[in-house]
């Protein structure tokens, strides 16, 4: 089967492209830079130079494809211009949806994010729970608008399923989308790692392989216009760090209070204002990691047969993989 895919050079798209290719599909991967070292290499992966903001390039790549995975997105929390979030995520997604609809793609899976749900309350958030606080980040808002667009196309007749990965970790490309893996790498290199001291804050940790399989399962058994949380275990920072310590005895985790982190974030922002350089992190990012974000994956487990790899096992595999690749 021919399958169109965006985001093949990204953290989730890369292993997804390979998995699809290995199972005998022809993957039409839309990539901005065909010379990129991050392009997945497989005889079944056909590279189509293009951009989701360039409709004709999508048109060319999606021609004849039965399925489409729209994984690409501007997945940052900071941009020089806020416009980027909307141009890449919203306009780009609209282009992909339009082309998929007009060219008769049978099924589409859109990769959203758990950040559209916002912080969780007493119980882990599930797909139908209302968002409790307003959107503050442009990334979250842009992804939410994309979901609305996907649902609109689904109502028009495009079979489109939304998946919401949570905090994804595991072996793979070193990118901004997998901070947990970068953290493990720093630990392995015996570098200091600064972590928030709010030990009881819950997060949801999804193993990359589960997320990739979840995408394929959503394509197979997902219901159109529905969304599925692809997550993992809900763990407090305390639990995460103690598991990490068990695996890497020499890990140098340095607790730092969120308040101090915020002050540094503020200084970073001032630096950005003066120099235009990208901040390492911002106060808004601190808020993000100090809010509870526990998710309930029961819907995906029930309807898609989604599988959750235990965190200890996922971390173990990640470490083994990093060691095998000389921490790169």
């Amino acid at each position: 089967m021919k399958i169109f895919l965006t985001g093949a050079t990204g953290y989730i798209g890369y292993p997804l492209a390979l998995k699809l290719a290995e199972t005998g599909n022809i993957v039409h991967a839309l990539v901005r830079n065909p010379q990129s070292p991050r392009i997945p290499q497989h005889p079944n992966i056909k590279i189509f130079p293009g951009d989701i903001n360039d409709r004709p390039s999508i048109s060319k790549a999606i021609k004849g494809c039965e399925q489409a995975y729209h994984v690409a997105g501007f997945s940052r929390l900071w941009a020089k211009e806020k416009k980027s979030f909307y141009e890449v995520n919203v306009t780009g997604t609209q282009h992909v949806l339009k082309e998929a609809f007009e060219q008769g793609v049978k099924k589409l899976v859109y990769t959203s994010s758990c950040s559209v749900f916002g912080p969780s309350y007493k119980e882990p958030t599930s797909e139908k729970d209302p968002r409790v606080i307003s959107f503050s980040s442009d990334y979250d808002l842009s992804k939410y608008i994309c979901e609305c667009l996907v649902k609109e196309y689904a109502h028009r007749g495009l079979f489109a399923v939304i998946v919401n990965p949570s905090r994804v970790y595991g072996p793979g490309l070193n990118s901004k989308s997998n901070p947990i893996t970068s953290m493990i790498m720093r630990c392995l290199k015996k570098q200091y790692v600064f972590v928030p001291s709010c030990k009881s804050v819950l997060g949801n940790y999804a193993f990359i392989e589960d997320v990739v399989c979840g995408h394929i399962a959503a394509m197979q058994s997902g219901i159109s216009a529905e969304r599925y949380i692809l997550g993992g275990e809900n763990l407090s920072y305390h639990e995460v760090f103690s598991i990490l310590h068990k695996e890497i005895k020499y890990a140098k985790l340095f607790m730092i209070s969120p308040f101090i982190m915020k002050i540094f974030g503020g200084i970073q922002l001032i630096k950005t204002l003066l120099t235009g350089m990208e901040p390492a992190y911002t106060p808004a990012m601190v808020d993000r990691i100090t809010n509870n974000t526990a998710y309930n994956c029961q819907k995906a487990i029930r309807q898609l047969g989604y599988h959750i790899t235990p965190f200890t096992e996922g971390i173990h595999q990640t470490i083994e993989n990093l060691k095998k690749n000389n921490y790169a």
Binding site: Y121, K122, E123, K128, D129, P130
Partner: peptide
């Protein structure tokens, strides 16, 4: 308008 989901969330929490 999603009122039932909101009500459900409030009852549970």
């Amino acid at each position: 308008s999603g009122l039932y989901e909101l009500a459900d969330f409030i009852r549970r929490n």
